[in-house]
């Protein structure tokens, strides 16, 4: 049997997928990236060995920010290409738009006939990313997923700062003013949704299927708000956070060994 391995070392989490030759998922691994991508890559290799991966019959593609830190990878492919490829596989469509909200950046990727045709990525700024949500959740002393559930019961607050540091000060003054946690949480999610929608305005979403991937894909309230703001149905599923790793594993399948 051939092992097609995709390793997506993101800014926050490292995701690993092992596919067999029929593209069935054999293993899923999820771990924090930590401070050293190289050590994380090494830990993944040990784990996969324990799971019985035969390295003589394996092909490895690395993606994500830490892609160059996987010494045993046969190839590096950018996460934009991998998310596009992975989403097509997960959502069973050759034409779609991917909204990938990751730890340090948000990407919108247009895929036609299974090939990435266009993409937009935020600049070196964390507005509208997982990091933004994480920092705001810390300030509110809740977990990111709790923040999203709280937001569903809130309203009436908007956070105007686009800069994460300024937005944090804004949240702190809202707390000081005695604003309800639910309402602040609403403002935080609202800010992310607005930022993503502005980016989406630069791509033509209307005639394609839209899928949410990346670390925030399981936050259903966020998905619902995106649907409402974009005026289009947005699909998500638990495996979508592995979209990059799945795309990388599919690229590994194409490597001849």
């Amino acid at each position: 049997m051939r092992y097609n391995i995709g390793i997506d070392i993101g800014s926050t989490c490292a995701k690993t997928i092992v596919l067999d030759e029929n593209k069935n998922i054999l293993h899923r691994l999820l771990q924090p990236t930590g401070w050293s991508s190289v050590e994380t890559a090494e830990a993944i290799r040990e784990k996969l060995t324990q799971l019985g991966v035969d390295w003589d019959r394996a092909a490895v593609v690395a993606t994500g920010y830490g892609r160059i830190s996987v010494p045993y990878a046969d190839k590096c492919v950018t996460e934009i290409t991998c998310h596009g490829r992975g989403a097509c596989h997960i959502f069973g469509s050759e034409d779609l738009t991917v909204i990938d909200i990751g730890g340090q950046d948000t990407k919108l990727i247009c895929v036609d006939d299974s090939v990435v045709k266009d993409f937009i990525m935020n600049d070196k700024c964390s507005a509208g990313t997982g990091r933004f949500l994480e920092i705001m959740a810390n300030t509110l002393a809740v977990k990111p997923e709790e923040l999203c559930s709280l937001a569903a019961h809130g309203g009436g607050v908007s956070i105007s700062s686009m800069c994460t540091v300024f937005a944090e000060s804004e949240v702190i003054s809202l707390i000081g003013r005695g604003e309800k946690k639910e309402n602040i949480a609403f403002g935080v999610v609202d800010s992310i949704v607005k930022k993503v929608s502005t980016q989406a305005g630069r791509l033509n979403l209307k005639d394609s299927k839209v899928c949410l991937t990346g670390g925030l894909c399981e936050f259903d309230y966020l998905r619902q708000r995106l649907e409402k703001t974009l005026g289009i149905s947005v699909e998500a599923c638990p495996d979508a956070r592995y979209a990059g790793a799945i795309g990388a594993a599919l690229s590994a399948a194409a490597i001849r060994k």
Binding site: T78, E79, I80, T81, M121
Partner: peptide, 9 residues
Amino acid sequence: TRLGAFIEL
């Protein structure tokens, strides 16, 4: 990442 993805496409 941007340049790499563009060249891949």
